[in-house]
Amino acid sequence: MLDQGVFYFFAALAILSAILVVTRRNAVQSAIFLVTALLATAGIFLNLNAEFLFIVQVILYAGGIMVLFVFVIMLVNLDVALHQVQFNRQWFVALIVSAVLAAQVAAAIAVSRRTLYTVPAAPAESLEPNTERVAFYLFHNYMLPFEIASILLLVAMVGAVVMAKKRV
């Protein structure tokens, strides 16, 4: 009962914030609402017994990536930008895409309505203790992807430094 309430609260928060992210004129406010959306998602993770992922989401996404975003917004912040037109005229494209997506989802739900709502979830204990399990999989079964991801990060870091460096 409490679990479900928490989920619906966070889901509503996430969707509301997401809508505000794409509709606010001011990029800083968009960023603030994106942080809210990310934290709401983190709450949903916690509700799903994914504690480690919850904290990864908070530290990395909300605390790390979004700080980077806010930084860059402030670096390139132009007062002029506020007076420019913030939306282009492709709203009909967006409408079509959304409509198609909605249709697909509706179709998918219609087809698998029965299973979608009746599949029993595995017991919550199967994910405990969360941190240890994640670590085991990460460093055991997914060792190679893990290393590849670290190389990806290294490349991204070098790339970001090179690109953001002042031209001499």
């Binding site: 402030m74 670096l75 390139v76 912040n77 132009l78 007062d79």
Partner: peptide, 9 residues
């Protein structure tokens, strides 16, 4: 008078 000039640009 103008904040952004101090930062970059």
């Amino acid at each position: 008078t103008n904040v952004e000039t101090t930062v970059l640009g």
